[in-house]
Design a protein around this nucleic acid. Structure first.
Lengths: 265, 265
DNA sequence: GACTGTGAAGACTTTCACAGCA
DNA sequence: TGCTGTGAAAGTCTTCACAGTC
């Protein structure tokens, strides 16, 4: 991720591995479910299964937070919920703005789990004047001219970009200039941000492509036991678009470089 | 990821690292943009910048695919687009079904980039009879009773789950039973699937929580140079929910365990 | 006896840095 | 000369396996 600062010197102690941080929300969700069923304690094995990881990993992860378990017993559910929430910073309120209220932005705005965990939709912002004032998921859409004002007045530090790819970078720049330091990007573009600003991206198309890769693998394996699908040995020659065609048009691909319609690419 | 098969023995050759696979779509997108601008060749440095990675990583990644570059020159854009597309399995058609046509499902259905790269929305499926027949993004919604029939008739191997969390697992089970072997899950639940089925998840709430973690870090660092935010030294005692409360209600959290409204959690 | 916490080993990933080729 | 391809080093993450504690 485009984290700033030259790679955490890890003074030990407060150095929780990124991979662990990424799993804490998973544990938290599983723990929350247990908490609602009033389960008092849980073993690493049970919790790991509920979170979809293995128990050794879970115990290692928790060991970075401290010794919150009891040997021979397991972990106290409520206590762990609190500790992980605190570690993730969910014991405080995080106002969030969503920029780009198309189909996706609207879906995000209406997402219930949003509000549930410390996150609060502070504003919905769109560049289309026709959208201004119209309520989406009960929140009136505001015009992007007011972006800076909204950010600073509400003390927003997290922004969600759900705009077309073509304007994502400029929206990002404005958000950052206005004081946002964490961005969740749904637009199919690489955003560049200054050091100190975190960007995470969610991209449907990328996920599908990764699945397609493995899917293709599976299909190929059905027949041959070793060696890939049906293309073969020596690379060298024999490949459709010549390794130096000047035509500038191979017939592949349609429009995609910019803003499809609603989301990732 | 819940990949089956005990960790690819990597007979060398066809063993592309997972981390590399996950970046191929990024390179492809950047290359596609260059292709549209009719740029004939690109250096690892330029392409890496466009894809948001560093050039050493990109070259290493490409080295797993084969030697597709020219020393002293760079990579032929069209040729690389083709090679990566092929490697990702995008030269073939992948029919996809989307299950759960709420706000999010509708947004996904209308997503343009979907169709652009080998993926085709074969069907939209929802359990609500009121939705049946209604066109969403130009595609008529079909009732979930017909799920199995749709999957097998269209030869669908990739399914997208955009249902509430509460029904995600059973939808998943039906998809798998019907022959789907790759699932993209937008529901905030851990899905369990048999070996050989791939699951990837997209979860807004998790991403936000990860951002909140780093955001909190930043805030803490402003004042103290070392050691975390404001909670401190000795863990041991001094923590709100007692490490063994029997009350079963600490006052935290609202409903969330199940199906919020539209998406991840 | 049951289960956590954690060093140590192993696997994977990234980065370095330079040999090799157009 | 310029830039790729890649061994080797460094860094990160996962898994093992067992000592320690309730």
């Amino acid at each position: 991720m485009a984290t700033g600062r030259t790679h955490r010197p890890a003074t030990r102690s407060r150095g929780i591995p990124e991979a662990t941080v990424a799993r804490l929300p998973l544990y938290l969700r599983a723990l929350t479910a247990l908490s609602e069923r009033s389960v008092p304690t849980v073993s690493s094995e049970e919790l790991a299964t509920a979170a979809g990881v293995n128990s050794a990993k879970l115990r290692k992860d928790f060991s970075y937070l401290g010794s919150y378990g009891t040997r021979g017993v397991g972990y106290d559910v409520e206590y762990l919920v609190y500790q992980i929430s605190r570690e993730l910073g969910l014991t405080q309120d995080w106002p969030v703005v969503i920029v780009g209220i198309g189909n996706l932005g609207a879906a995000l705005a209406g997402y219930g789990g949003f509000a549930s965990r410390g996150f609060r939709v502070a504003a919905l912002i769109d560049a289309d004047p026709a959208m201004t004032g119209r309520p989406v998921a009960g929140i009136p859409v505001q015009h992007s001219d007011d972006l800076e004002k909204i950010i600073s007045e509400d003390g927003v530090s997290i922004g969600v970009i759900a705009t077309p790819a073509g304007v994502a970078q400029q929206v990002c720049d404005r958000l950052v200039a206005a004081g946002v330091t964490s961005i969740l990007n749904f637009a199919p573009t690489v955003l560049s941000v200054p050091d100190g600003v975190d960007v995470r991206k969610v991209d449907l198309s990328i996920e599908l492509q990764i699945l397609a890769f493995h899917e293709q693998r599976k299909a190929g394996e059905e027949s041959s036991a070793e060696e890939g699908p049906d293309t073969d040995a020596e690379p060298a020659v024999a490949a459709p678009p010549a390794p130096r065609g000047a035509t500038g048009d191979t017939g592949r691909k349609g429009p995609d470089g910019d803003v499809p319609a609603v989301m990732p690419a």
